[in-house]
Nucleic acid binder design. Structure first.
Lengths: 145, 145
DNA sequence: CCAACTTGGTTCGTCCCACGAACCAATATA
DNA sequence: TATATTGGTTCGTGGGACGAACCAAGTTGG
């Protein structure tokens, strides 16, 4: 069977929506002179102080990419590298006070922006899309070794 | 009232999902040595031959950004600039044969990848998320002048 | 009919982002 | 202790996006 040259309606709709969301987030981040990736990083650091390794994995970046990202964020005073106590090799990343306040502001802004986007939905639909999105992003259950 | 420092469950879930989708698309595009933006551009050109202006708007880029994008795509033989017959200033962009075949391949791959992502959903949930996504990405009805 | 404006694109300089390869220091292993 | 392995950084490359300056083709107004 020949591959379809047109996307399925479902795929198309979902992909379009993801682009719409990303566009909003990018605009919002740009308004604070941040890239989308930096926005994500700040979000990821809100309640963690991961190693470079862990953060890179979480963001889907290589370690060299992350190194540069953190360089820039550190240069802006949003983030700080701290040595790990246990292992002399590993470096942990944490928010500075300035970074924490920026993260809070941005979190609120993201909420507002996405809420606005979801505004046309009924309460029922909101609940449904939440459930579905959660389901799709939940890590698949893996049997412990 | 103080702004929340944590995103709402709904917003968080939806944003996470959008990142998951983008990551899949980016990986897929990278596998064909293309950027996400070029992937989008190819998709947009499947059934149109827009002016630079129109394409830039569709992709949410400035005209200078688009100029560079099309330069590179043209350099790879995926796309062609053609002069507009009516207006000597405007340039139209269209797929080459190679670009058309790449677009077809990629469309199929996107379908497969996103279908896989949506695999855990029931048929009902798929229908629901399609409806919701459509609703959210549909342009708001504007009264004709 | 021609000068002044507008419009559609390109070019240029700048910065961010992401990657792989090479490298270095600290730890783990044999 | 010699040899991996691991965690990060550095460097070079290339795409991506932007604004400002620019240019050519159309449009408008006197």
């Amino acid at each position: 069977m020949a591959p379809p040259t047109r996307p399925s309606a479902t795929v198309d709709a979902v992909v379009q929506l993801s682009f719409a969301i990303q566009a909003r987030l990018a605009t919002l981040a740009a308004g604070h002179d941040l890239s989308l990736t930096q926005l994500r990083a700040l979000g990821a650091l809100r309640d963690r102080r991961p190693t470079m390794q862990a953060l890179a994995e979480h963001l889907g970046l290589t370690k060299s990419s992350l190194s540069g990202l953190i360089d820039r964020a550190e240069g802006r005073g949003l983030v700080r590298r701290v040595p790990d106590e246990a292992d002399g090799r590993t470096v942990r990343v944490e928010l500075t006070d300035e970074g924490r306040s920026a993260a809070a502001t941005l979190t609120a802004a993201v909420n507002e922006a996405v809420d606005l986007l979801l505004e046309p939905l009924s309460a029922t639909d909101r609940a449904t899309i939440t459930r579905i999105a959660r389901r799709l992003t939940a890590p698949p259950p893996s049997p412990p070794p």
